[in-house]
Design a binder for these strands. Structure first.
Lengths: 348, 348
DNA sequence: GTGAAAGCGCTAACAT
DNA sequence: ATGTTAGCGCTTTCAC
């Protein structure tokens, strides 16, 4: 194994010079730098991660915790993870993947051992088990999602309440008066993950303001479940013409079922989905949708956590980064699944 | 930060004793062990990862490389990643997530720096860029997938050739004579990832043996693409009654389109899918399928890599683990999407 | 069964 | 602009 000392000898300089060439923390004359860089290349030197972490007490590793409880939509998680890893590399950091089996202890272990110098937490619950640790640790941490009490926490998420309102606005403008929300599986609500509730709250809020009626039905992704949910909706409110769907798995079954029932989309029923762009664009009827900006969330989380790390590294010099909740504004893209409400309708 | 030395002082023993209590590498009297363990608990001690890695030259980290090129089915990747992380923890290891942007250099960096002491590579191509490194490094590495030359490599994958044969066997037994494979996107074949080809080869092989006819059409997951693919298949071979689908995204569109065209599944057309169990069970028609054992693959990969690590740690003592290709046998589950071939058929 | 001490390879004062 | 050097916290001989 090639060490820094060997590089130094080969280049005819001291160890610290090599170190400083690597870190750029002090000015090195061009000839020396070039000599060192050449030696590094020729010897195939790679700084030892452990030694570096020990000496500098910075591991250059960000821990990404995804508990992966039931019913989460894997592709979105994955997209976030990818964005996190990519962005981390842009900041010369690597990502350690922590899944849920270990429980909140994992975070404690990883932070306590200095394995990671920062943390990004996904799949945040309203009363998340990991919050005490996050609050007490000095390590920069960012949550992707919102707990019920965000005091002192830095969070990133889509503004789901605004998302709900936006969906209603769109449907209301098209003349729809009776709406229904096909939501996530009941387990998601029970787990109190927050985002599902926030959407529904946004929907209700704006619907009330505009005098629309709303039915909300949780629904797991299976074909039968979607069928049942739809049946109950149209049974209870035959005049329903606007559907807001927040459940990726339910989308295709839903479209398929509507078709079978002779309800044309968007002539008879308009559908707005809350889902990744990719999903919305690839369905049998291209969906009007509010995108879940997975990439953006991952990127922003890393960017925040790095800003915090920088600030705490600078000590009192830099202004400390205030904890803050960053809610991404939703954007609705109109596609083929929404249109004017049918003119003739029963009273519902 | 609590150090091992502080624990030692607190327990009234030497540093090495604490170290040995932690590692179990030498016998400690019960009273001392208990005293040390108590001190550890009381002080909230966590061994420093960097120091440990430096002293022992083992980081207890496995790098998981997933290049994530176009058109890969994210949920399967994710499932593998989760299984890898879970299994790694059972072996007291953590997982470092490497994505593709950095290219093969990432592997070199991570291994060269001692950041990871083992590697698991996903999304392996036939002539994978990372193979030279894998072959030259002494670090235990396992590929999930098969390159064209597996000499000296340890690989884990589903036996896709056997999968193809199994699908044909099933359809043949039901009396189908004209089959079609709805494959992955053309990009997947061009990228020479191997698995898609292997399935088709298996299908062709067995079909030839049994005197069946096979059409193979790549297909991306979009609704239009599936529509086009189906049209071409039934145009060219109107007598086609058996479909093998290896493309998760294409499944729902396909079922939906068949329904629209008045082709009943399985009365008119039988469909066998190669996809995760979860997908097969959740579709509008429950699919007869060969499962992609993502969890098993992830677990097996970690288990192999750990076995190799153990062997090389033991030096000459243990018998070295021979590199080997482990192909998981496919299992076909019969569900609702396959049935006897319709009796009356045109010659095609 | 336990201790003492020599590193592991790097960083960051402190020098000049 | 560069060199010297004292650790960082742990593992692991070697010694008893």
């Amino acid at each position: 194994m090639v060490t820094l000392a060997e590089v130094a000898r080969h280049a005819g300089v001291s160890a610290s010079t090599v170190s400083y060439v690597l870190s750029g923390k002090r000015t090195i004359s061009t000839p020396t730098r070039e000599r060192v860089e050449r030696s590094i290349r020729e010897l195939g030197y790679h700084p030892n991660a452990g030694a570096r972490a020990l000496a500098s007490s910075r591991s250059h590793i960000i821990a990404l915790m995804m508990p992966l409880r039931t019913e989460m939509y894997l592709p979105v998680m994955m997209e976030i993870a990818i964005a996190v890893a990519t962005t981390a590399r842009e900041h010369a950091h690597d990502v350690l993947l922590l899944t849920g089996q270990e429980g909140p202890e994992a975070a404690r272990r990883v932070v306590g051992s200095g394995l990671a110098d920062a943390m990004i937490l996904m799949d945040v619950e309203l009363e998340d088990q990991r919050l005490p640790l996050v609050r007490e640790t000095s390590r920069p941490s960012v949550l992707i999602g919102l707990p019920s009490d965000t005091t002192g926490l830095t969070c990133v998420d889509l503004d789901f309440a605004a998302t709900g309102r936006l969906c209603v606005d769109h449907l209301a403008r098209l003349g729809h008066r009776d709406l229904a929300v096909v939501g996530e599986a009941a387990a998601v609500y029970e787990r109190r993950t927050g985002f599902a509730e926030r959407t529904v709250r946004g929907v209700r809020e704006r619907a009330d303001e505009l005098g629309l009626r709303v039915l909300h039905r949780p629904c797991d992704g299976s074909y039968e479940s979607v069928a049942g949910t739809l049946a109950r909706i149209f049974d209870e409110r035959p005049g329903t013409t606007g559907l807001v769907v927040q459940n990726e798995a339910a989308i295709e079954p839903l479209l398929s079922l509507l078709r079978q029932q002779g309800r044309a989309v968007p002539e008879d029923v308009s559908v707005v989905a809350v889902c990744p762009e990719q999903v919305a664009a690839g369905t049998s009827v291209a969906l009007t949708s509010v995108a879940i900006p997975a990439q953006q969330m991952g990127r922003l989380a890393v960017e925040s956590v790095m800003a915090m790390a920088r600030a705490s590294a600078a000590g009192g010099d830099a202004e400390p980064v205030e904890p803050r909740v960053e809610l991404l504004p939703p954007a609705l893209t109109v596609r083929a699944s929404t249109g004017p409400a049918p003119a003739a309708r029963r009273a519902g």
